[in-house]
Design a protein around this nucleic acid. Structure first.
Lengths: 196, 196, 196, 196
DNA sequence: AATGAATGAGGGTTCATTCAT
DNA sequence: GATGAATGAACCCTCATTCAT
């Protein structure tokens, strides 16, 4: 029972924080922010209610931490894209990662989508999300233009909506939704199949 | 002296019920169901809290009444479609009405979209929404097929997602979203412009 | 449609008042005063909620009206007793009427018994009930004395308790309670059987 | 620094639970279940309203906890009886304890008596109380039989009613009621006086 | 770092009572 | 004499948050 090193402490802290965030993510995504109580989160995380306030100053603060991480992880997901030489490859990568994200980060996707619809209630997030939206569009447009799509500006808007729509429908129908088929449809439409 | 006639009473009831439903719709859409209190609805409707329970047995019952009406109004919006002779006209009508709905029935659209993402919490609604989804798809497919689209089945899924995606983005960005432009893009893509 | 005579009016009034009191009696006895709502009474009586306030100034006032009648009817029940010449006959009559009262005026009995246990809450009734109690005892004592019971004072107290206890048990067990048998036991104990 | 030991927590819980139950008992007995509010209980117990729900899932659950304890304590009161050799001693003990119970556990007695009259509203309790009633009777009969009472079956029913009646009258008249005298009357009637 | 008992504002809901007709 | 829509206080209960340990 020697005193823990500060490194050990840090690790413990990290673990608890992590447990709480994961529990909260699952519940916020599944039941909605306002319909999830701190007690439920504590139980799901296997910690005492009070501990949550050692790491997060409020329920909203906890939500913000989750969102920040979601956005960061989202960025990571698309990070390698600029390394790809070819516009066609980049677009394929971007679309592929979008689907990957929906599937493997379902809770994040669901939570962010839900929150998007109630942005006015979370002013802190509003700007970030709007920026994402408005920075993605030019990128898409550029890529579409470089692969020879005619009305690249218009097509970019359609593609953006399409990806969002697929996300929503996947959230709603989940296992009944033909996610893989939708990806292939997109690949085909933009001629993105490997060796084609 | 004498009590009001039952017709008078019915009218009074109708009006109050209406005020309450409109207030609730606006708040549910704007702040979310769980983040809206009965007190807020009462204040917005300009009635006493208790009166709401003369018309709805619970907050959830009130929500259901709103949803039922939303679905009914949605059906009305598409009702005339079958009267149109031409598949191209029908598709144009369907898309046009979708946009009309988003714009003029913004609150209904927003509420239903939000609830879609949390269907498991409102079991009564679940089936209805899933049915809508699964009955719309074949219809789209049929129309697309009849206007000579190649992979009508795939294209129908894309179009469905597209419309949903446009809805979501319109909800999020609202006045900043180029709704009219999106409609024209869709018309163009399916060759639906009048006299074309 | 000639204007009703004041006599007709009076009759109508009487009828409505009666319906309300009967409905209230049944519900107060069955569910308790505090667990019965004005709405329930109105529904049970088949009148509008508001009408109740034409006849009674408050829920409590309605209760008091019922109690007053109950006490009056109780008095009636024992009224003929003094006409009887013989002490033995009088006692038999008193006991017999007690049982008759429990059986045919079950709701009144139940309501009064319940209220007795909560007398402090209905100060208006308190004194009346206490008086009943304390005026009945000497009467019993006198009768018992006149039929030759030894410790008439003590026996009177026992008999009073006994009658109350039978009432309570009859309320609790109701159809399972051997009311008739109890009466015979009492008759036998005080030698009150006809031609004996 | 470290959290309290679970033993400390248990003790704290025990105390708070106790305070709440005692406050509720007093109020339920005094004002009736439906006429007692959670706020009143909290105030009487000296705790916050919300705390009550840390210990009891609902107002009814709190009532049930009290009843369960009342019945348990009642059982304890009569537990030693079977240890007594003589039937006469047993009967004397049973009667004596009945009076002791009324006097020292006045609130419990009052609450249970009141609830008895409204059994249909508390279905969970119904059976328990009926069982008590129907198991006590044979016991009384047996004892009376063994001390040579003639119609033991009938006498048992009278005695049971008598004890209930005394209870009710004691509740109603309380300090004005000659409880001790009644006990002596019973002892005398069944010849239960010590050294007799 | 961690616990969970405790608080009290505010949630959904009920209900005695009023009042225009 | 009668109706029932409307009110608002008070009900039971939930929950984010605090705090002693």
């Amino acid at each position: 029972m020697s005193p823990r090193t500060s490194k050990q402490y840090k690790e413990i802290r990290e673990q608890s924080r992590e447990k709480i965030m994961m529990a909260a993510l699952e519940l916020f995504a599944g039941r909605g922010f306002h319909n999830t109580s701190i007690s439920q989160i504590a139980k799901q995380a296997g910690v005492a209610k009070g501990l949550i306030y050692n790491y997060f100053s409020s329920k909203e603060d906890l939500l913000h931490a989750i969102i920040d991480r979601a956005l960061a992880e989202g960025d990571e997901f698309f990070a390698k894209m600029t390394g790809l030489s070819d516009a066609r490859q980049q677009l394929r990568y971007l679309i592929g990662q979008s689907f990957e994200l929906m599937e493997t980060q379902f809770d994040y996707t669901k939570l962010l989508t839900s929150l998007s619809l109630q942005l006015d209630q979370f002013p802190g997030i509003m700007e970030t999300v709007r920026e994402k939206y408005s920075s993605t569009l030019p990128l898409l447009e550029q890529l579409l233009d470089r692969i020879g799509v005619e009305d690249a500006a218009g097509e970019a808007k359609l593609l953006a909506a399409l990806l969002d729509g697929i996300g929503v429908q996947y959230i709603v129908l989940h296992h009944d939704y033909p996610l893989e088929e939708m990806k292939q449809l997109l690949y085909k439409r933009y001629n993105l199949n490997e060796r084609s």
